[in-house]
Design a protein around this nucleic acid. Sequence first.
DNA 1: GTCTATAGGAGGATAGAC
DNA 2: GTCTATCCTCCTATAGAC
Lengths: 205, 205
Amino acid sequence: MVSTTPTKVSFKAQMLLAREDAIIQSVNRLLAEKGFEAMTVDEVAADVGIAKASLYKHFPSKEDLAAAAMASVMRRAQVFLNDLPPDASPIDKLRRVVAWTMGLKLAGEMPSLPSQNSSLRSALMGHKDYMDGLMDVSDRLGAWIEAAQKQGVLNPKLPSIAVLYTLYARACDPVLEFLKIGDLYNNDEIIALVLSTCFEGIEAR
Amino acid sequence: MVSTTPTKVSFKAQMLLAREDAIIQSVNRLLAEKGFEAMTVDEVAADVGIAKASLYKHFPSKEDLAAAAMASVMRRAQVFLNDLPPDASPIDKLRRVVAWTMGLKLAGEMPSLPSQNSSLRSALMGHKDYMDGLMDVSDRLGAWIEAAQKQGVLNPKLPSIAVLYTLYARACDPVLEFLKIGDLYNNDEIIALVLSTCFEGIEAR
DNA sequence: GTCTATAGGAGGATAGAC
DNA sequence: GTCTATCCTCCTATAGAC
């Protein structure tokens, strides 16, 4: 009997995590589809297949749901950064990361949050996992940006922070969905187009 | 008595238009500040200084309020296009237009609408003034884009529609507000920075 | 921790007097 | 056309039984 107790606890804990993962996955998809305001907690509960009150046992508020989804995306980003080929050049890594985020967005897996909502902002800022991930990702991207600028392949006159923001903004670029609606290009072509306008600009070279 | 009637009618009509202009101005500002979902009709009424029921005599729904605000911005854009120096080159005109829209955004006069909301979309599509303005502006920008591509100063490999979307997207670029929050650059510097990344890209030239 | 049922409140829209 | 007062729907969050 001594051995069964920890096994049962571990099993229960695993089920719990699995359920929370399912919740986060639903939130992620709904956030990408409809945005934060339009997504309702009832929808999330229905999508996961549990009662709304049960949701609130796992996450104390709608804002926390969104923050957990963002933290999840941030973890995926960290994994992606880790898996980049170490011998790739800094600018090549940057291009791959941006292409990856645009792929997520086009696949409907990139949650889109309003940057104005204050209760949401504080929930995000108070979420340690998310903030740690954001800082880590920003540091690594920032290092590549400055390295690429020193190499002279990225415009050294641009403040690195402006470049970082520009890259982040591709994750919520409305151009992606507009081109997708137009139905003239497939996802890979759209990504190539926006990647080109981002890195090379729209002026001729 | 024959002459007084039309005078009174004209006066009343003028007051009506003035009030509707005031409403649209408030809506414009609130949309820029908080976005469509967070803006409440009560707020608009309070800001204008009239009762909410009176608002609904002028505009049948919240969506129509937003559509009227967008139509107003579109008219301003048409005026701006008309006032551009006729001897400027196409690409120069494009740069000036984009800089103007970013200035509006930084000044808090560019309404930001969620591109997903369906009831809002149909209200916009059903608003003749707005749609006519949008088509006119798109046609003129599109002509300049293709002229600049023929001149070889804009990348001819990019589909002109993708360039058009890219320019439109600068009106709601989150990079603008992030740089503004950072407080390291003034509005003119921010506009110059984003204009540079947009036209020349982030890669070195 | 899961459920059903409901509190509590915000917000879009309208009734009806003037 | 303007007001006050109100309706009614939707949504976040919680109570309380199991």
